[in-house]
Structure formats: C-alpha cells, structure tokens
C-alpha cells in the first residue's frame, strides 16, 4: 500500500503551500487517497510540516472521521440522529452489528464493511437512514437494512433498484 502512495504526501503538502494551518484538509486528502491514515504517511506529514507527530496524532484521534486502520470494501454510515433514533435506528444498529459482526468505528473481520454510526446525516425526513458507499437509503426497517447489506455483501448490483423504491413507503 505504502509503495503506491509514494509522493502522495509531498504533493498534498504542496497543494496547500506547506501551510501547517491546513493540517486537517491535508489529512483529509491523505485519507481520500489511501482510504485511511497510514502511519508512514503521518510521519512524513509531520516532518514535512515540522508539526510534532504527537500533534498530528491528537488531531487524527480527536476527529471522528479520521481512520487509523484500513477501511473495508464498503463503508456504512448509520445515522444515529434524533429522528432516526426515535424511529428505531438503535434496533437497526444492533441487528446489523449482530448479523455482520460489526463494531462501531471498525472494519468487519472479513474486511467487507467499515461501520461508522454518525450523529446525523441531515436527511431526517427519510429516517431511519443509512449511507452505504455514499448512497443514501431511507425509510429502513431492521429487515430491509439487513437485506440491503446482504445484497451488497454478495456483490449484487441490484441494490440500486432496492434503493430507488426504498424511501417510498413510510
């Protein structure tokens, strides 16, 4: 992984003219490139900007969107906002954690899914909502959420159809 990312950090630092105030955007760019924040890249960033590695890590661990471990094939953001909560997101969370061996903030043992419960994705009118690989799925039930992930796990591309009808009822 690191080999293919050769030069990434240097390019990113240059993109922001080496301004250490832009540390967070730089780390976001690294995460976009690498899928997470690899140790080697963070070290390079730290020395490139002359920001202590401890500071880089404190930023990396403070903000919940940063990942220090590689992500799975698919990322699941389950909305835990107030409305989703009122409409049963808690149960969905329990069910998919059970079914797919997910742990909040981590990647499943089979490397399929990275699971992140998030505060609110701002699509409250569709609650409960889950965002999988950037696609919003609304009006979920425990069963439809499990079904959706099952399909994705099987690599079934028909998920897009499921999603088109997903929010219609309720």
């Amino acid at each position: 992984m690191t080999d293919t990312n050769e030069g990434t950090v240097a390019t990113i630092i240059e993109r922001y003219q080496g301004d250490s105030g832009m540390l967070i955007p730089m780390m976001q760019d690294i995460q976009t490139e690498c899928g997470y924040l690899p140790q080697a890249e963070l070290k390079e960033l730290s020395s490139g900007l002359a920001v202590p590695l401890a500071d880089v890590y404190s930023v990396a661990t403070f903000y919940s969107s940063f990942r220090l471990m590689p992500k799975g094939d698919h990322t699941i953001q389950l909305c835990m906002g107030t409305v989703c909560f009122l409409k049963g997101a808690g149960k969905i969370s329990e069910a998919i954690q059970r079914e797919f061996q997910l742990v909040p903030g981590e990647t499943s043992p089979d490397g399929k899914f990275t699971f992140s419960p998030v505060n609110c994705v701002g699509a409250c009118a569709l609650a409960p909502v889950m965002v999988v690989d950037g696609q919003y799925h609304g009006g979920l039930t425990v069963d439809s959420a499990v079904e959706l992930l099952d399909k994705i796990a099987e690599g079934d591309k028909s998920t897009e159809d499921a999603q088109a009808g997903g929010g219609k009822k309720k």
Partner: peptide
C-alpha cells in the same frame, strides 16, 4: 436535493 436523490431522483 439529498432527500430526493436518496429516493432515486437522479434517474
């Protein structure tokens, strides 16, 4: 918008 897109408005 995000809501309608989630319900397939892009198509």
């Amino acid at each position: 918008g995000t809501g309608c897109t989630a319900k397939g408005s892009a198509k």
